[in-house]
Design a protein around this nucleic acid. Structure first.
Lengths: 249, 249
DNA sequence: AGAATAGTGTCTATCAGACACTATGCA
DNA sequence: TGCATAGTGTCTGATAGACACTATTCT
């Protein structure tokens, strides 16, 4: 709690905190934060929102919100996953169900929120790049922006959100090779080069085009992927396009 | 220990639930549950406790407890990780720090606990087999027992603990090949066969001794492992013993 | 001596990295 | 026609699975 950066406190954060006083209930709040990734201009981007309120007023933060836990033992509110979907929907304006969402890790350090004990169940989401530009339109009133990952990691974020961001990045790097998450970051149909550029953006490396194509060929043979009609037009020779086969054999 | 609104158990489950009435606070409880694994008799075992109270009275469950969240914004209680360590310590009696512990997943379905909204941050722990027999001695009064995994998965457990158990098993299976967790399930020094039998117990498969030894040889060359003095006596030819090199190069 | 387990060596298929090469469409 | 990018082929080294084999200790 003592190690967080201090925003331009016009003497008001203390007042603000004082209003919270005691947590009489001996119960914590549970929040969800969502690291929303996409690919834009061959770069990995994260969606950040600017905070208008204390604490960390003026800092940017991950989109998040509190979980509705209901008010009786028989009406216990929404599932955590549903809360994450809700945050994702309200901050991006994208329809629920069009975006890949998965739980990441739960951050529950005492003092991570100065207002009261808040346990945050962090998630990450992968937005297909053709949907990403729609985000501003449907987004909430607060300032939301796609920030390229290196910049976001350099910038001091609210709460422990930098740690969350780092962990989310590590997670998708690790899962890239043995899961299908890369297909969540390309349009419905894509060329091999587009898929490769997603890998490169996430890993921060370059891949040999020939070798990548070979791996791709195995996916094709295994039915993970299939040809799609049409071509992707580029500056020179057009590329064949493919589609992810959701029905796995 | 941790402050939580749980009265003593008596009467039927319906009566018991009725006492809970409304959750006036619109706040959930946060708990930790710990899947504690060990290897005994070349089998993967889990520590289960028998519940003496409603709900799920008489069922077995994973060791767990509520997180102490303090009572003011400046005294926010214990970290989630600390709560998991505490549960691990009090249920096993093993000294804190001798057991590998890692967060698994957070289970926050509405209604998963009929008393009130409870969000459980599940963890898993790996106990070295030479420490496992000590567990009963220091354990809490409630009945705790090492149960072999297949039996535990067949048995109906309290709450959603079967799901938690399945996920924990899947996690250690997945991590076995690309992390060092296997070394947390062998004694300080171990023979190659002992390490192999840990792999086999976790994966439920058999490994070719020669091929396993070859992988092992690479770990030795990479300095991940080193020879330890002495031999492991068996029914026939004694085996060399090794030690995990915690100082990685 | 024989049983049992520790430990070694070999053959083969698969796959990744490096890199040279050919093919095709646009300017 | 030339250039940029799509797409193919090849060599090499690392590794996994299957399996045959040798070595050493206990009884």
């Amino acid at each position: 709690m003592s190690t967080r950066p201090v925003p331009e406190a016009s003497g008001t954060e203390a007042e603000f905190l004082a209003r919270y006083r005691r947590n009489r209930y001996h119960l914590p709040a549970v929040a969800v934060d969502v690291v929303i990734f996409t690919i834009l201009d061959t770069d990995l981007k994260v969606l950040l929102v600017r905070r208008n309120e204390h604490p960390f007023r003026g800092f940017r933060a991950l989109p998040g919100g509190f979980v509705d836990v209901g008010d009786t033992f028989e009406h216990q509110g929404e599932d955590i996953e549903a809360a994450a979907q809700r945050v994702l929907h309200t901050k991006t304006g994208l329809p629920v169900g069009t975006v890949y969402l998965e739980q990441l890790y739960t951050f529950g350090q005492a003092g991570r929120d100065p207002r009261m004990r808040v346990v945050s169940v962090a998630h990450y989401a992968l937005v297909q790049p053709d949907l990403a530009p729609l985000v501003r339109a449907g987004g909430s009133a607060s300032e939301v922006e796609w920030v390229s990952l290196p910049a976001a990691l350099r910038e001091p974020l609210a709460f422990d959100h930098s740690r969350i961001l780092e962990m989310a990045h590590g997670r998708i790097q690790g899962k890239l090779d043995y899961t299908d998450i890369a297909f969540e970051l390309v349009p419905e149909t894509f060329s091999i080069q587009e898929l490769r550029s997603v890998h490169e953006a996430i890993l921060g490396t370059t891949h040999d085009p020939g070798n990548f194509r070979r791996r791709f060929g195995r996916m094709l043979a295994d039915g993970i992927i299939e040809r799609a009609p049409g071509k992707r037009l580029t500056a020179s020779k057009p590329a064949s396009v493919y589609r992810f086969s959701r029905k796995r054999p």
